[in-house]
Design a protein around this nucleic acid. Structure first.
Lengths: 205, 205
DNA sequence: TCGCCGCTCAACCTTTCGATTGATGCGGAT
DNA sequence: ATCCGCATCAATCGAAAGGTTGAGCGGCGA
């Protein structure tokens, strides 16, 4: 019998997962959490955690995943979310998630994924696997710390002049950083850079 | 007996709604739709449609809502989504939705909302009602639908030229919208407008 | 009916941004 | 010891964005 914890801030989603998974004789939902903090507390009791990423407030799902997988003899964490953006996927994998599924997955796949995860097998939704392949093929746009700092200020709406003052630089240096950012991200404007940076999880979302 | 149609592209969510609503003796889920187009086809058969806004591909939930409410003797449409951004809310209301709920709503509220909607009463989630009140109270940050649309494209990193092509406008019109957006938001650049727009929930974060 | 507001467009001007070229110093990797 | 990436700065030029003024049209409410 595989014991499950459902971590999602939407009661409707928890009810749906429960309905879908409890038709399986070898799966048992033994706990539900409506926040990431609660999920961390309850994780020790189960074999597999179904973890959402976005909670209304408080801890993020990937943080909770990292805390759960940090302990020895930790349960497997299966991330189950709506989005398949690069940033989310990478954060979840780095946090030690065993798998990454999307909520539009058919119920059959869900049960199968839980069983695979319980044995430690990595399980990825097709769309997620596709993204990861793309990322391998296209070397990640690794911005330097300074460049990320500049991009963050751009995302806050600051002009080059304002950024230069904030960071005690000349405008020339700010522009220089921006040129590098644009080439690395494959864009040609500050707004596009912000959009791309968010997409790839380079700046806070 | 109130007959319901569940329109959501996530099987898990549909299962959850079914589980939650079928415990109520006076509610009956008679159909499910996994796309907006399907929802439009099936809408005639029911009293209330529970409509998601984001579908994986194809028609948007607000478009489907508009089509459904256009016919005489139309069922009530209750929008049930994850987001409470001004853009989504305005679009849904203009499309003729009877109510706007968020998926993190407790199950009890859900059943009550459906009953109210069936009698034609407007039902709003507290967070949504709050946003609408703010809009009334602070006309400063009340962007028009068109302006929100433009701001959304700016946030995606498009240039004025690209936006003009996308919306079949001249660049002059796009600039005109942007000037209005800047004054309403109290900023003076596109990136700052995007930051402010996100801050105030005018566009999806 | 009149006026307001949203949406559309034009012309003009100023400022900012983006692109290019080139240079310096520092620190880690080879 | 040398090379390369990172961070810093300068000068220049064309392109894009921002600001202003003005104007026409359609809908909606007073």
């Amino acid at each position: 019998m595989i014991r499950l914890l459902l971590a999602d801030d939407h009661p409707v989603v928890r009810a749906g997962l429960r309905a879908v998974l409890e038709t399986e004789p070898d799966l048992e939902v033994v706990a539900e959490a409506s926040s990431a903090e609660e999920a961390v507390r309850l994780a020790a009791e189960v074999d597999v955690v179904l973890m959402d990423l976005q909670f209304g407030s408080g801890m993020h799902g990937s943080e909770a995943t990292a805390e759960i997988t940090a302990s020895s003899d930790a349960p497997k964490v299966l991330v189950l979310t709506t989005y398949d953006t690069d940033g989310d996927i990478l954060a979840a994998i780095e946090a030690g998630a065993t798998g990454y599924l999307l909520k539009d997955a058919p119920p059959e796949d869900l049960a199968a994924a839980v069983r695979n995860a319980a044995t430690g097998q990595t399980v990825l939704a097709p769309a997620v696997a596709h993204r990861l392949m793309n990322r391998m093929r296209t070397p990640a746009a690794a911005l330097s710390p300074r460049e990320i700092e500049v991009l963050g200020l751009v995302a806050d709406g600051l002009s080059n002049l304002e950024i230069s003052k904030r960071l005690f630089l000349s405008q020339a240096t700010v522009k220089s950083h921006l040129v590098h950012i644009y080439t690395k991200l494959g864009v040609d404007s500050r707004t596009a850079a912000v959009a791309a940076g968010k997409e790839q999880g380079l700046i806070r979302r």
